[in-house]
Design a binder for these strands. Sequence first.
DNA 1: ATTTGACGCTAACGTTACGTCATAGCCTAC
DNA 2: GTAGGCTATGACGTAACGTTAGCGTCAAAT
Lengths: 217, 217
Amino acid sequence: MKQYAVNKLAKLAGVSVRTLHYYDQIGLLTPSVRTSAGYRLYGEAELLRLQQILFYRELDVALKDISNILDDPEFDLVHALESHRQMLLSKKNRIETLVATVEKTIFHLKNKVNMNVEDLYAGLPKEQAEAWRREAKEKWPGQVAHAEKQLLTMDKDSYRQLQEGFKANWEILASLAAAGLDPASEQVQQEIAIHYRYILQFWGKAGDQAAAYKGLG
Amino acid sequence: MKQYAVNKLAKLAGVSVRTLHYYDQIGLLTPSVRTSAGYRLYGEAELLRLQQILFYRELDVALKDISNILDDPEFDLVHALESHRQMLLSKKNRIETLVATVEKTIFHLKNKVNMNVEDLYAGLPKEQAEAWRREAKEKWPGQVAHAEKQLLTMDKDSYRQLQEGFKANWEILASLAAAGLDPASEQVQQEIAIHYRYILQFWGKAGDQAAAYKGLG
DNA sequence: ATTTGACGCTAACGTTACGTCATAGCCTAC
DNA sequence: GTAGGCTATGACGTAACGTTAGCGTCAAAT
């Protein structure tokens, strides 16, 4: 029967020797024999097991889970893979959102929509807007996409103007907050509404940090 | 001027106190003041900087890169974002491939195409096939997609038959390898050709491990 | 028989971006 | 003055190895 030392097996399977050491260490793939000198020797069974390990690893399954899959015949593989699939899909969604955001950012930078003249100011609306878009979408569904297109075709001066307005609104909000005004007060609510409208035009992006928003109010 | 202690700032920005400690530690976000008791106090500027940090972090940019972006005005942000975008796109591609593979695997498992009767055998072709599909695609372009459809509509018995043939072929290859035959010999080449054809029908998937293939020969 | 060079071993730190204690000082309100 | 809440600094844990470092083994060539 064939026997493979670490290097051989590593090359056969396309992994590093370190990986085999590691898999041995965590008990995921134990060599069939240890020579008197301590050398690891693997047989066919181990080669096949390694193939399976690599298969699941390729699917981004954690090594611990692979252990379970391979060692526990009762393991509900289908279920595990289905939830794994969900994970992958949401990862994909997230990445798609990121790509869109990055592309938009690149666009803005390329068009030098100042944004850098006052770095302090520039960073804020990006993040804030990022954080509020989803809320905006809920309140004025359908508007966001429109606002985005508008923004993309806007020239520098209009943009500058918008930015000024946004900044003014932001500063009012900040002063109200500093004054310790009740977030539920009408004045605050009004400014917030204006703020949302600016956000809609301005950037059109967000997470779900209503909490942070309230924190500021 | 407003001042925020760690907890305040953390809640405002939606991050943990530990994160602020960490950002201070790596010099990404330093408090404007340290009280005599060692307390960190952040001002408005730090809040804004944190917003920027969070914005880039949201885009999966490494903290080190964020440091560069924010601290080096010469930093080529557009270029960085463009290469970042490429990274995201290839990540996305990879995930899409993974999802497809996972779905196919689930399909096979659900249809109980045995695959588990002999676990050792079951895992092998998956990984091997995974590893060889690209090669197959190069050699018989257009065939792979067809083979996949065929496989998906195949009933259990046909599949079983296919699997038997594949196994036999595999064992021949293994014995030839064990006999130390020259991988360039015609006999080996022939079996390999058969092998490829099986792979085409069998699974239709792969990486680029021609090396591993040759290693076996 | 010895040298050489390839290969093997273990131990242990480095990586990323924090989470999670543990221990102890500080601050404010009652 | 004391309880409760906030803060600080370590320091270990995480996932999956990569990367030295220091040292033993083996097979072939001399």
